[in-house]
Amino acid sequence: MLAKLLKYELKATARWFMPLYAALVLFALISRFLLYNDPFVKNEATGFLQIVRILSMSVYVFLFVGIMVVTFVVIIQRFYKSLLGDEGYLMFTLPVQTWKHIMSKLLIAMLWNLLSAVVGLCSIMLLIPAQDLADFGLLFTGINEYFGTIGYFTILFLMLASLVFGIIEMYTAIALGHLFRKHKLLASFGMYIGLNTISQMAFILIVPFFLNTIGSLSEPLHITPGRLNTLILITGIIFAVLAAVCYIVTNIILKRKLNLE
């Protein structure tokens, strides 16, 4: 049943992202063409070319920001509208366990987040002059130097864990806000601030403890790949634990305290 939920969630969201991705890549290509192949260079219409260039780049930037906004809005809207709005009457009367509903929303939200990042990055690479693309290699040299090969895994783990937490934290805030009889949206917003404060407290309390164990704070900290990776791993684990707690809380609320009105 989870696979079927994922299928419908993907269908419901793809109609937003696919056209935006296609448009973004298209305008990156157009801008690239206008920037590096000057079809009018021998003409006198250079003023006109400038306008077309600026126009094309503006549309590109507009789409880029648009994708970021849509990614964020869709996370909230799919959870709020399709589970706690009128569509919830259909979703919650399907013979499916509640945790699968949450999981399907979460996995698809993650997918679009990652895809938006990848498509965004690719479009930037399209716009960078070929000779500068080599600078991207510096990033990897840097990771190798400061984190070692294992750094790729710890950094990836941290990114994924923080992404999962970022999404599920919003779900939990919405579910908690739903417990209020009035002003549910305002309550959700307040709950989000509360959850954020709690999670930051967790970091403030836990991370210094480990900083002490990986190197004495009284002495100048000698940074080694091992210490950096341990720190990243701990941060990632805290995100993962927080995400697990949020998931459980959201599931309990939707399972035992659901009140669709």
């Binding site: 419901a12 109609r15 399709s82 009128d86 569509e87 919830g88 009457y89 259909l90 009367t93 399907l94 013979p95 499916v96 366990q97």
Partner: peptide, 20 residues
Amino acid sequence: GVETKKIVSYLPEKTYLNDW
């Protein structure tokens, strides 16, 4: 729960159909 939802067919007083 899941077991009852398999055998209950429910018509709500609201429109639950998504638009798209």
